[in-house]
Amino acid sequence: MTRRATTPEGRRRPPTRGERRAPVRIPGPVAVGLSPVARERIPSACPEPSALIGPVRTCVGCRKRAAKSELLRVTVGSETHGQPVVAPDPQGTAPGRGAHLHPTVECYDLAVRRKAFGRALRVSTGLSSAPVGEYLASPSNPRSTAPPP
């Protein structure tokens, strides 16, 4: 006969290290063919980090993860009048906080529509993202996916 986990006053006490609690069964209908314990693993929409080589970053436009080398880094710069703007940093060497973006017009438009540049770069004032748009639209952009005019 096993001892019950009770105190001298008759109250239940928590189990000690050697004792195990019995599983709790919840009464109710059980679907036929489904085990309450077995769970199916649903694959993630993003590739596993181990599948990507090198540093991994998230695009602020589409929110998909990609290798750092595939993305364009943008930082906060200033225009000629001193207003803050989102500036492209193709070499990735500019100082300060940066955000990453797929070098496509679609991801750029998504980032502008979602106002993602201000959040990612942690700038509360209005940012102009025109320099990044011009950079992506220019035919001299080596990463551009836009067809030449």
Score class of each variant (00 low, 15 high):
Met1Leu: 15
Thr2Pro: 14
Arg4Lys: 05
Ala5Asn: 05
Thr6Ser: 07
Pro8Met: 14
Glu9Leu: 07
Gly10Val: 11
Gly10Pro: 04
Arg12Leu: 02
Arg12Trp: 00
Arg12His: 01
Arg13Phe: 01
Thr16Ala: 07
Gly18Cys: 15
Arg20Ile: 13
Arg20Phe: 07
Ala22Cys: 09
Pro23Arg: 09
Val24Asn: 08
Pro27Val: 10
Ala31Ser: 12
Val32Pro: 15
Leu34Arg: 14
Ser35Val: 09
Arg39Trp: 11
Glu40Ala: 14
Ala45Tyr: 10
Cys46Lys: 09
Pro47Arg: 09
Pro47His: 11
Glu48Thr: 12
Ile53Met: 06
Gly54Glu: 00
Gly54Arg: 01
Gly54Phe: 00
Gly54Pro: 02
Thr58Arg: 12
Lys64Val: 11
Ala67Trp: 08
Lys68Ser: 07
Ser69Leu: 02
Leu72His: 09
Gly77Lys: 03
Ser78Thr: 15
His81Ser: 15
Val85Ala: 03
Val86Ser: 04
Ala87Thr: 13
Asp89Ala: 03
Gly92Ile: 02
Ala94Trp: 01
Ala94Met: 06
Pro95Ile: 06
Gly96Gln: 06
Gly96Lys: 01
His100Lys: 00
His100Gly: 04
Glu106Gly: 09
Asp109Met: 04
Leu110Lys: 08
Leu110Ile: 06
Leu110Gln: 08
Arg114Leu: 15
Ala120Tyr: 08
Leu121Glu: 10
Arg122Pro: 04
Ser124Thr: 12
Thr125Ser: 07
Ser128Glu: 04
Ser129Lys: 08
Ser129Trp: 05
Gly133Gln: 04
Tyr135Cys: 05
Leu136Thr: 09
Leu136Tyr: 06
Ser138Phe: 06
Ser138Met: 10
Ser140Leu: 08
Ser140Gln: 08
Ser140Val: 03
Asn141Arg: 01
Pro142Asp: 02
Arg143Phe: 11
Thr145Gln: 08
Thr145Gly: 10
Pro147Ile: 00
Pro147Val: 01
Pro149Ala: 12
